[in-house]
């Protein structure tokens, strides 16, 4: 079993208005066999983190400026592209948010599923088809042999997402990166897909990085959590550290602002005022300073370093001890 560690990763994009840092000095470790959740609002850099790990950043605008992504001691950012292609799909599988755009509409399910098997394993085509049918069956698609010959538009959203998962898991990777795998799906289908991922994880001993904006999904599935805000890690720790002992004002605000089934009817929800700052005019100090109700003079001046709360719980806030 493998662990994936991201160290001081910086990813930049060239835009018309200049170079922007989409993620800035991000570090975390996804432990073997466990589920790590990355949570944050849109534009906070969760998806860019995933694309950086896979080295699938849009070219030529996006590049990893510094830092490393280590899979069992190998730095993926330094691998020649041919070597990286052997990692993608075989050692790290990826599930994308939108199951319609992740599949090619003009190829059959079978062709897209066997492609990954034929590339990474030297097996004859009929064996690839046999394994493909087995995989579709495993992810819970009824009459898999018929589905192999069908096109993505003939399947429902939930079924398509199952196909994407089957493709990601075809070569039994050590890692699965799931970028908002259930955001486009209904709750009953979401529950099916999350259960499927959990089941396959325990069966194959795989590690999962789950990217989502839904704190409910995080609470139900993850062991460790990274909370991102405006391209930086705001807080990281075990799922209990984050939900029971959140130290960062942003995490606390986020947890308080979601209506749950026990929130009083039509009561005023607590809000985080303002908006996430744009990447082009980031504040000099703490990036949450302009929305934080606890900010004081030093917060605007210097960017806080990650401070240790306990062994695995770290927070990027100067004043966490006083709050």
């Amino acid at each position: 079993m493998a662990a994936l560690s991201i160290n001081n990763l910086v990813t930049e994009f060239d835009t018309d208005e200049g170079r922007v840092r989409a993620i800035d000095d991000v570090s975390f470790t996804a432990k073997a066999g466990q589920t790590l959740g990355i949570v944050g609002e849109s534009g906070c850099g969760k998806s860019v983190t995933a694309l950086s790990i896979m080295r699938l950043l849009p070219q030529p605008m996006g590049q990893i400026a510094s830092g490393s992504v280590e899979l069992d001691g190998t730095d993926l950012t330094q691998l020649p592209i041919q070597e990286m292609e052997k990692v993608r799909g075989a050692r790290i599988g990826m599930v994308f948010q939108e199951p319609m755009t992740a599949l090619n509409p003009v190829h059959t399910i079978g062709r897209q599923l066997t492609e990954v098997l034929l590339i990474h394993k030297s097996i004859p085509p009929d064996e690839a088809i046999r394994q493909g049918v087995e995989l579709l069956d495993r992810v819970g698609i009824p009459s898999p042999d018929v589905r192999m010959t069908e096109y993505p538009h003939q399947l429902s959203g939930g079924m398509r997402q199952r196909v994407v998962i089957a493709i990601a898991l075809a070569c039994k990777p050590d890692f699965l990166i799931a970028d908002e795998p259930t955001t486009a799906l209904d709750v009953t289908i979401q529950a099916q897909i999350l259960d499927l991922i959990k089941e396959l994880q325990s069966e194959m001993g795989m590690s999962v990085i789950l990217i989502t904006h839904d704190l409910g999904v995080i609470a139900e599935t993850c062991d460790d959590v990274v909370v991102m805000y405006a391209g930086k890690v705001a807080e990281k720790g075990s799922v209990f550290d984050i939900f029971d002992r959140a130290a960062h004002p942003y995490t606390r605000g986020l947890l308080k602002s979601i209506p749950t089934l026990s929130t009083a009817h039509k009561s005023t929800l607590s809000v985080i005022d303002g908006m996430v700052p744009g990447l082009l005019d980031l504040p000099k100090g703490c990036r949450f300073e302009n929305r934080c109700t606890h900010s004081e003079a030093p917060c605007g001046g210097q960017a806080p370093k990650l401070q240790t709360v306990n062994e695995q719980h770290q927070v990027s806030c100067l004043r966490w001890q006083e709050l």
């Binding site: 429902s156 079924m159 979401q190 409910g216």
Partner: peptide, 21 residues
């Protein structure tokens, strides 16, 4: 039962219905 609850202490087995609409 399918709604994920933002509380890691309450991980209960859900009644999942199979299939699509």
């Amino acid at each position: 039962s399918a709604i994920p609850i933002p509380d890691p202490h309450r991980r209960v087995k859900r009644e999942i219905i199979s299939g699509d609409v």
